[in-house]
Each structure stands twice: as C-alpha cells, then as structure tokens.
Amino acid sequence: MSPRDLNDAGLSPLAVRGLTVAYGAQPVLQGVDMTTVPGAMTAIIGPNGAGKSTLLKACLGVVKPLSGQVSAWGQPTSRQRDRIAYVPQRASVDWDFPTRVIDVVLMGMYRQLGLLGRVRARHFKQAQDCLTRVGMQDFADRQIGQLSGGQQQRVFLARALAQEADLYLLDEPFAGVDAATESAIIAVLHGLRDAGKTVVAVHHDLSTVPAYFDRVFLINRTAQAEGPVDVAFTPETLQATYGGRVHV
C-alpha cells in the first residue's frame, strides 16, 4: 500500500493534511502533508527555522494550527494520547528542577497512574526497567541537575519508554549528546522499530540519515519530499530543501 492508501485505511500512525501554523503573523508551516508508515523510522529533516519542531508540536496538539488536520491511526491525536510518546528538546526544560531521575521516568506513567493513583512497587520496577534499557539504571536516585547532557537525553527517552506507546515522536534526540549516548539511543530506537513501533525524529545530522532511518520527510516551511531514504534522500531533494549549501 502507498502511504496515502494507509492513511485512507486509518492505518497510518501519524498523518498530516494541509497543516498551516503561524506564530502571530509569522507563518511557520504552510499546507504541510505528511504520512508515516507503521513500523518504520522516519527522520524529519530541514534547515534551521524550517518548522520541524513546530510540526511535531502541532501533531501533539502542543501548538494549535491555523488550519489542517492531524490524525493518528485515522483518529484525532487527542483520542490516541495513550499510544503516543513524546520526547521534547532537552533544552526546553529547567534541569535544575528539584526532582530525581526516577521521578522523571514515572512522569511517563501519568496517564496510567491518573491524578491520585498510588505509585506502587510495580510502577517503580517498570520505571527502573526503562532506565536499564537506556543504560541509566544506576542513576535512579540522582537529582536530574547532576546529569550530563547525554544522560539527561537518555532519561527523557526512558520517560517516553515508560509511556509504552506505539508511536514515538522525538525532537532532536541527538542534539549535544556524546557518541556513547548516541549509539545507546539509536539502539533503543531500532529496538522499538523492530518490535513494530513507529518512530519519528527531528534530525540534524544528514550524514547519519541513511544509517539510522528508513524514511525521510524533508521540510522547509512546506513539505519538500517524502519517502524511503534511497528514494527521497537525494542530492536533488536536499538541494530543494536547503538550497545549494549541502554536502552529504
């Protein structure tokens, strides 16, 4: 099935149609169409200010679009929140916040725990398992401000794992992390994909796109190209997206 057929059948984990977003009078995204394929890892690529993060936020309902629709498995994303995990940009939060690593991971279980549900031993164990999957099992009781950038990013990924979702949206998961963290994160993401989950990540480093991702979505305020890496990730599409200053 082509991506568009997937969407029509309500199978695409995340489909965007005619999405237009503006901050004040400043248009950021215009008429964007995007269709993700289940069980694939998709990179959202584009120059700075192309609207990549905004696209993710609009998909999650964090940013309200002027027009257009976002659907997850054929339904509004607001009705599929239990199946969608989100990893915001690491720099978007204050890491001096008074809380421990394990507490951040437990935040991923909010929809499971509810307003007043008791955090029981099995919740702690589940959170601890998520930390183990990202190699942070020894840091559960640390204050989050004591972590390095790469460790912080892994904790954010562990929180997303605790959401036990089917679709993972990550905003620059490799920004400012060390090489060990980068390979740990990619191993976890590939594990998710191999388990049939769908992964969509805003990505900056063009050189790692073919090694890390199955599909690309190129964007510069409008959608530029979309498809499997060997088809859509070409000098021509990059030229169209970045305009004459790209070397892969």
């Binding site: 999650l60 964090v62 607001s78 989100y86 915001p88 935040m107």
Partner: peptide, 22 residues
Amino acid sequence: ALLWRPLKLSTFDAGFAQSLGL
C-alpha cells in the same frame, strides 16, 4: 495535594504535559 501531579508535571515540562493532554 489533589493536583500535585499535574502541577509538578506542567511546571517541570509544559510541552510534555500538553502532549499528555494536560
């Protein structure tokens, strides 16, 4: 006390809290 979790979550990470529907 009643709203402790949403308060803490949205104070620490507003974007993530919104993605949960808070």
